[in-house]
Design a protein around this nucleic acid. Structure first.
Lengths: 249, 249
DNA sequence: TAGTGGTCTAGACCACTTC
DNA sequence: AAGTGGTCTAGACCACTAG
């Protein structure tokens, strides 16, 4: 490891800026994942190997990996190994898909793309995505269907720089899987603000309900592994047959 | 500990039903907290003491306590000790209060009690709270204000059996603190279902908006330490100046 | 200074997967 | 049988709090 410490050597100076070894190990592993040394689905070296390479004990590596497991960045399988988390598994349904049908289990909504285009970022977009004044963004608009009925109207805003060519290519249902596979961007967490609104005529038409129908207005900011904001997403969701799921721990 | 295992004794039979020691320790500690051996705010014995008492290593006790920390059941303070979590701290603001003003930090909403009465549980209430057919429940209705304006209309339903006399006494702002202090019931987690609705005239009047105004309809089921459902809460929330906060990890 | 939780190490064995 | 993660132990020292 970069910083100091053999089991019991001469007392190494720093009393302040104390940073536990396992956190350094953890951050270093995150760096490597973020920089594509290990991509989604890849196996990490075993605990023993990492410990040897970094000159720390296996227990310290374990603690770092347990931390990453808690953050859903890696998946550990007894007897097999430790793997970088993927975003195309059933797990994502419970992580980033909060809308579920009132009866029955969550289903991945089918998407119908309305448009995908590049344009100059607005002042607000610049601020929230931490972009320079004159940066470009990609706007993706789509309708999502649950059980055959249009339920969510979504507007996704992305920094054009980080997702070159996205607007021109095929846009799959699972965006976070695409971000990871094609652009090396892993979504680690997101923050949502939810309000209740009534639908304007245009939106109501898209969702096939009457104007003035109530809907959830969900404003999401998604962050990458490093904590950089990488996606802005505004959803309008009609909740006649579904709901937003939230667990408080 | 009840079940088996000294470091390396004669090979004790069970290969199946394998349950790690630290989980047994953890469950035993939860039992004691649930049964009031240690109440909210109390200090637990130190790791050393617990390890000695239970005949396991300190590391195993630590792992059990770390698990309880993750579940917000205990709070550990370096140099001081381990304490049973309380529900009247600022922490609760981020745990169970998901409504925040659009600008500025979350504030604890002031409450105005409308009614508190005991009645026979409906069929649905029986089902969701896992009560017998003819059980009684307590209904508390209140309005909650944010920045002086009425924002949330709340209906709380409790099993009368678990909260004797609650309807007759003083009802404070912080209900979960009351449950813990007066009735020995600790809320450990909750599940919410959120929909968008438009307000009927009566509710609109209470919240001082026009009928037809959009609002969040939040349906919460709160569970105790043991996982028993203990509170049903339906909130109608006007989101003109505030929003529902949700973090996706 | 004593006691607590927090970190780190070293080594053992267990359970699971794969060959 | 070999290799991986999972559990458990034992003992050391560090950082923080309180008397």
């Amino acid at each position: 490891m970069p910083s100091s410490r053999k089991p019991r050597a001469a007392p190494d100076a720093p009393k302040v800026g104390f940073n536990p070894l396992y956190m350094q190990v953890r951050d270093m592993l995150v760096q490597r994942m973020a920089h594509g040394v290990w991509g989604p689905g890849d196996a990490l070296p075993s605990e023993q190997e990492l410990a040897k390479e970094l000159g720390v004990s296996q227990g310290t590596v374990r603690k770092a990996l347990d931390d990453l497991t808690d953050r859903n960045l890696v998946v550990r399988r007894q007897g097999r190994g430790t793997f970088v988390a993927e975003h195309d598994e059933a797990r994502i349904l419970f992580r980033f898909l909060k809308i579920a049908p009132d009866d029955g289990a969550p289903v991945f909504p089918v998407s119908r793309i309305l448009s995908a285009e590049r344009r100059r970022a607005s002042a607000e977009e610049c601020a929230r995505l931490e972009l320079e004044r004159d940066a470009d963004v990609i706007h993706v608009r789509r309708i999502r269907l649950l059980g055959g009925r249009p339920v969510i109207s979504e507007t996704v805003t992305l920094p054009a720089r980080s997702f070159p060519g996205l607007a021109e290519g095929e846009i799959p249902n699972n965006l976070y899987g695409l971000y990871a596979a094609e652009f090396g961007v892993t979504i680690a967490k997101a923050i949502e603000r939810i309000k209740a609104v009534v639908l304007a005529p245009e939106e109501a038409a898209l969702l096939e309900v009457a104007p003035g129908h109530p809907a959830l207005h969900i404003d999401r900011l998604a962050l990458s592994l490093e904590g950089t904001p990488v996606e802005l997403r505004v959803s309008l969701c009609v909740t006649d047959l579904c709901h937003y799921r939230s667990e408080l721990h």
